[in-house]
Design a protein around this nucleic acid. Structure first.
Lengths: 140, 140
DNA sequence: TATTAATTTGACGTTTACGTCAAGTTTAAC
DNA sequence: GTTAAACTTGACGTAAACGTCAAATTAATA
């Protein structure tokens, strides 16, 4: 048995095609993200190897995109998850940015809640009209 | 006094610059949205006049954009708010699309909640580090 | 009525976020 | 050792969502 807990999952690296399958994106996308400094795969010769850090970053990237943030906005926040190796001043800035992002996301969630309510009531109106027009309720 | 309640707000029309101020967008944007059939301003001669319907649509457009939907996705849903003048078959389709959109928005809200939780805890870690490094807690 | 301000229609430019080849290199399999 | 599969770096293309500029028209105001 190993004295040092290896945590194979932690240290596992993925080839680019593995990453593609993992996150349902193209290789072009991953290379593009690297060129934009959102990912930092290590190199084995010429080839890329994606580490746990890259996997974590990709998760956040996908999440950010889902919520409508631009890649540049996402990039700035990613440092929040690797702050160990930065200077204090840098971390402070990232922290401040994180706070802003947090409140923006909380605001967005509130707005989303209201939009959902609106949409629901609108759908009700729509349904009523359809039923009045003789639609079969099983269709709706 | 008017026998027919005029509801001046309802029937008020806006020039393009008024709309720009109202929604903080450029005239180009409004014309672009018209060309994409998201807005249908009436014409007084050559000039555009935006009605209550356009104001309502713009509100939904801005909302949709905030949540990361494309203009085309938004356009399809906008019919949900003017369904009176469409054929039953059309309305049914829009209704179905609305249901899908609703569940997608609810899903997004859930994810947003989780992302907020993650971000919060990450910010805590970051804050701890900053304090350990001797940052003044009043800065954070 | 003259002129100024607001608006119009093109037409081309720009940014973001990738897609799509082409041509060369590396690694794995036989 | 060679061949096929995977991967690489350019370079150019594209769709969405506007921005920008020019030239013409229309409306408002003095």
């Amino acid at each position: 048995m190993n004295v040092i807990p290896t945590k194979s999952k932690e240290h596992k690296v993925n080839t680019i095609t593995e990453m593609c399958k993992l996150f349902q994106v193209s290789a072009r996308t991953l290379r593009f993200y690297e060129s934009k400094e959102l990912l930092f795969p290590i190199r084995k010769g010429q080839h890329r190897l994606f580490t746990k850090s890259d996997r974590g970053r990709m998760k956040l990237i996908m999440q950010g995109k889902r919520f409508g943030f631009s890649l540049e906005e996402i990039r700035q926040l990613l440092n929040l998850y690797n702050f160990g190796d930065h200077r204090t001043r840098q971390i402070k800035q990232t922290y401040q940015l994180g706070l802003k992002r947090l409140s923006s996301m909380e605001e967005q969630k509130k707005e989303l809640g209201m939009a959902i309510k609106d949409l629901k009531s609108q759908l009700e109106l729509c349904k009523d009209l359809l039923l009045k027009r003789g639609a079969d309720s099983r269709d709706l």
